[in-house]
């Protein structure tokens, strides 16, 4: 019975993926990729992983698609020499080989896969968290998430380093070329408040139900971008102290709590028993804030060297 729903989803995903790879107009390929992101979101729901579905749609399909849309116009500048038919055939054969190998592995992987679910279940109460995924993210594998925020920060520094403005005081280039029209203004005025509410809810509920810092941060970033595009909010001056503090808040709050762990608890990134939940929430607030700012700034791009 479930095949009835899974097979079409799979076929749509493959069709969209082939369209994204097939070539032709860059804009169409990016649109296909955004559809791919959404379809993957449904598939993650089918795999009983709502947290990942949210992330896939918000970050994988949404903001990544948005960033790729910006690049759609410039693709032609990096076009290299085409390859002959023989190459295409070889590539196809190798791709089929990869498919065969991976399919064999997926089929051969032990059916009741060896899993850490029981261990997470037994240790979750110690973290006062309801949502196991957030538990893994913030407590059991806290180092990965800490590094995650640092990766975002370094990627942003990398994007900024491309600008001619040595001290990055300027503002990024405008997202929407034309002066904001009435429809955009109306859309922003209605959707942004709702979006911000949803973002904060997503982050807040993340402790016990699917949601979390990344998903909430992504929605908040999207709303900020919409407000900037509609002209309700000026594009931020990237040299601003408040902006940079917000950027640094996530990773360094997490680091601070981690270092405190040595003295208050018994290891780096270990939460003292009494106040685990509030401490985690505080850390998540900082992380969500810096993720939202970082994602938005990554889409906005490097400072354009103008003070305007």
């Amino acid at each position: 019975m479930s095949l009835l729903l899974d097979a079409p989803l799979a076929l749509v995903a493959i069709a969209v993926a082939i369209r994204a790879v097939a070539g032709g107009d860059a804009f169409a390929r990016v649109a296909a990729f955004m559809a791919y992101g959404l379809v993957l979101g449904f598939i993650w729901v089918r795999l009983a992983a709502p947290d990942v579905a949210l992330t896939e749609i918000a970050v994988g399909g949404g903001i990544t698609g948005l960033v790729l849309l910006q690049a759609a116009g410039d693709a032609r500048f990096s076009r290299e020499r085409g390859v002959g038919l023989l190459y295409h055939v070889c590539a196809a054969i190798l791709a089929l080989g990869v498919f065969a190998a991976l399919a064999a592995v997926v089929l051969l992987l032990p059916e009741p896969a060896p899993s850490l679910a029981p261990q997470v279940a037994t240790n979750l109460p110690a973290t006062d968290l309801g949502n196991p995924v957030t538990g893994v993210l913030i407590v059991f594998r806290a180092l990965d998430t800490l590094l995650e925020t640092v990766v975002l920060l370094v990627a942003l520094i990398g994007v900024w380093s491309l600008s001619p403005d040595p001290l990055w005081r300027g503002r990024p280039a405008p997202l929407w070329p034309a002066p904001p029209s009435g429809a955009l203004d109306f859309l922003a005025r209605v959707v942004v408040p709702v979006g911000v509410l949803v973002g904060i809810y997503l982050f807040w509920a993340g402790a016990d139900v699917p949601g979390g810092a990344f998903q909430g941060g992504a929605v908040l970033a999207a709303m900020a971008l919409l407000a900037i595009m509609a002209g309700l909010m000026p594009a931020p001056a990237l040299g601003g102290r408040r902006l940079r503090l917000a950027l640094l808040a996530g990773p360094f709050a997490f680091l601070g709590v981690g270092i405190a762990g040595w003295f208050v608890a018994d290891a780096f990134l270990d939460y003292p028993d009494g106040i685990t939940k509030p401490l985690i929430i505080a850390v998540e607030v900082a992380i969500t804030a810096s993720i939202a700012v970082a994602l938005a700034l990554l889409v906005l791009g490097p400072p354009a060297g103008r003070k305007a």
Partner: peptide, 10 residues
């Protein structure tokens, strides 16, 4: 309703 209306106008 709101977003598809606004987006189609844009």
């Amino acid at each position: 309703q709101v977003s598809s209306g606004a987006v189609s106008q844009l």
